[in-house]
Design a binder for these strands. Sequence first.
RNA 1: GGCAGGGUGGCUCAGUGGUACGGCGGAGGAUUGCAAAUCCUUUAUUCGCGAGUUCGAUUCUCGCCCCUGCCUCCA
Length: 455
Amino acid sequence: MSLQLHNSLVGKKQPFAPLHEGKVGMYVCGVTVYDYCHVGHARVMIVFDVVYRWLKKLGYDVNYVRNFTDIDDKIIARAAERNIDIDTLTDDMITEFHQDMDALGCLRPSLEPRATTHMGSMIAMIEALIARDCAYVSESGDVLYSVRSFDGYGKLSGKNIDDLESGSRVDVDDSKRDPLDFVLWKRAKEGEPSWDSPWGAGRPGWHIECSAMSCEHLGNTFDIHGGGMDLKFPHHENEIAQACAANGGDFARFWLHNGFVNINAEKMSKSLGNFFTIREVLKKYQPEVLRMFVLGTHYRSPLDFSDQALDVAKVGLDRLYETKRRLAGKTVEESNVTEAFAAALNDDFNTPEGLAELFECSRRINKGLDNNVDISLDIQHFSAMSALLGIVQQDAETWFQGDSDDSAAIEALIVERTEAKKARDFARSDVIRDELAAQGIVLEDGASGTTWKRG
RNA sequence: GGCAGGGUGGCUCAGUGGUACGGCGGAGGAUUGCAAAUCCUUUAUUCGCGAGUUCGAUUCUCGCCCCUGCCUCCA
């Protein structure tokens, strides 16, 4: 079966075919760089990392663009708060962001454009919108987008303008022709960073950034646009309105939205304050645990965050690493994933089903090892599937034992215990095992000697 | 109020018009000096509730209940 994507634009799965043979253009909304990333951000990045990896595996030449919003109200406020330059803040946060992403095993996108270096294309797009009567300069001096001018407004989010207005919580701004009109260009306020434009000094609105940067780097019409479900409205709706009205054609062809990360059945978010940063989680859990946790649920479903859920992910990974550990020393040839795995990923990136296949493959290997039958093909599959998901990528001993420096002492005790066992002095060997167990060390007596891990 | 997405075993998470995948946990067995790990067997007359369509529905349709989100910044 070929790749099927759930396209938010039509609300169902559709067969995927790129605009240009063999090439895929994909844009994913990145982060606003004013603070550390939390688990919600981690989910988007991990989900689209797997999308990226799978598209490449299918043989596409993928141009993956993920932006940084490096100018907005929150950034200005935070820089002022910390009494540092905006550039210092954003550069710093981008470095921290990359650190988190690298830790999580997310491949770097092809390009990570920053809003502040794309003023030209944003201004050009706004000019085009004004020329087409889709935007206007308000009394306050801001440039606004006129939502009534765009017929398809609301198509992505399944809303219509009248419904939006009746349920609107937005304060009515007199300078707007319509309450739903949104800012394309904000006139500079005293002391704020600004860029020159035909409408005076100012800075871009959030939505225009993504429309301009995606079109500049991927062309006016491109294949995939992704992001969190919360960006569907108004952000992505506005992106479509801007790009389509300015360019006169289609914008992104497939829209992919991932579900939220919840805590106690509530959305994890900055505003609710119920978030955990990635680095907080990584103090307690290895990065692959977070990855496993994310991939264990389909990307569009809600994902409940809890220590218990992470523990479950950890135990599952342990199982896979036990298999990898038994494979130590065996050379693995480059190979492909199983058909079942490919079918799962092709079905709108069904990673839980992909994981099920990986676990089954693990069992086949263990069984083969126990019964001494040829499992070379399974080993290749195991390696290819785990690599594709970006898990079980560490050395198994490191995974189980960590890299602290008490290993020598532990191993000395294991040698002593082995001697005792050889002498059938089980009382002594059990004492040693108990001593180690008290330190959290679990021993496993295998056919080729004793191995250990931290429990 | 409008719109979107959900409700599957003790927990978690897939899936399908013909009685349900995987993981965790539980029980039993093999293996082991005993463990650990691994393997085998087992663990949902049942998929929120009611009705309809059908030979047959958890899967389709309708109604209802409950949960979450979006409609303001948000991944």
